[in-house]
């Protein structure tokens, strides 16, 4: 099929699909009139049952923690797959052992990266630690921490030496986070007989140490996401550096 013919077929089919979907969404509740009831139930019970006001975190790490466990495993498996796919190519490194080292990144780039690593890392840790109090949490905070790690590479000698820090350490961080969340789930099973049960003291609402297992889950997820994102980026960066010898 030529490109043009394929475009026409795709346009026709997607036009029909789009029309059907628009008809379908007209049958939904009008925008702004969410019918409930699950969100309303959560809004009512979470502050008393879990001593936190962060309904989304309570949903993700407690009431629907089982979904998050599955999601964690998806993330872990996908990153393992990425690492495996990109690792096969590492043998190519041997071939250009003799290639000259790349020039050092400019002073401005290195200074800026070095200056930002600390603050960004602190911001990431803050977002992770306050996930049960304010917007944020392990997923978004983990990505910020990964950003700090990548800044460290950008400012360091990584680019010049064509290798990006310790992959093993990132793999370890990611695995530790995934194992941590699994251990938290199993700890609930051992302590109370129910997987992922919130078995820790709930504390006072609004305090850093409150809401039982929710902040612990945030930290575990934060570790895993930081490791995963930094690992995937390093693998791709390494590929890019291999591809482009000069």
């Amino acid at each position: 099929m030529t490109r043009r013919a394929r475009s026409f077929v795709a346009l026709a089919a997607l036009g029909v699909l789009g029309a059907v979907l628009v008809v379908a969404v007209t049958g939904l509740e009008p925008f702004g009139h969410y019918p409930g009831p699950y969100g309303d139930v959560l809004a009512k019970v979470v502050p008393d049952e879990r001593h936190t006001g962060q309904l989304v975190a309570a949903t993700v790490f407690d009431y629907r923690g089982f979904d998050t466990l599955g999601e964690e495993m998806i993330l872990f498996a996908a990153v393992c797959g990425c690492a495996a796919l990109l690792r096969v190519l590492r043998s190519e490194r041997e071939e250009d052992e003799g290639a000259p080292a790349r020039p050092v990144p400019s002073f401005a780039a290195r200074a800026m990266s070095a200056a930002l690593v600390g603050p960004v890392m602190v911001l990431g840790a803050y977002v992770v630690a306050h996930g049960h109090l304010t917007p944020g949490g392990g997923f978004s905070g983990g990505v910020v921490v990964a950003g700090a790690l990548l800044l460290a590479y950008a400012g360091g000698q990584g680019l010049r030496l064509r290798r990006v820090g310790s992959i093993t350490m990132l793999e370890g961080t990611e695995a530790l986070g995934a194992a941590g969340f699994l251990a938290l789930a199993l700890a609930g099973l051992i302590a109370t007989g129910a997987l992922l049960k919130n078995f820790l003291a709930l504390g006072t609402s609004g305090m850093l140490l409150s809401a039982g297992t929710i902040p612990v889950g945030n930290v575990a997820v934060g570790l895993e996401v930081a490791g995963a994102v930094a690992l995937v980026f390093s693998e791709f960066l390494e590929q890019a550096l291999l591809e482009d010898p000069e």
Binding site: Y34, G36, Y38, G39, L42, A43, L55, V56, A58, T59, V60, R64, D67, T68, E71, I74, L75, A78, V79, G81, C82, L85, L86, F139, V225, V232, E235, F236
Partner: peptide
């Protein structure tokens, strides 16, 4: 607003990112 769909969206974003990473690899 409903926290359940926001939690679902969070899962969605993570799965979307991993799918992109795998496909790019």
């Amino acid at each position: 607003v409903d926290p359940v769909v926001q939690a679902l969206t969070l899962t969605d974003v993570v799965v979307g990112a991993t799918v992109s990473a795998l496909l790019l690899a």
